[in-house]
Amino acid sequence: MSEIADKVKKIVVEHLGVEESKVTPEASFIDDLGADSLDTVELVMAFEEAFNVEIPEDAAEKIATVKDAVDYIEAQKAA
């Protein structure tokens, strides 16, 4: 697992209070991990802070799963 994926996982576990084993790449924040719309706003903020990236609203709306988040952040970091 990449360093980014590892850090994303930690943030998700901490913010949503879920078991680490449930945070699979395919897991949906809302459908699988019990987040509501405000939780996802907070998660995106936490990603921005942790990775020092900007995630605009329209991009944030497309981040539904753990993998979506990792992919987006990796792309930003590679750019």
Partner: peptide, 10 residues
């Protein structure tokens, strides 16, 4: 300000 928690108001 952009880092304000979405839970601040509630």
């Amino acid at each position: 300000a952009k880092r304000l928690s979405p839970f601040f108001i509630p």
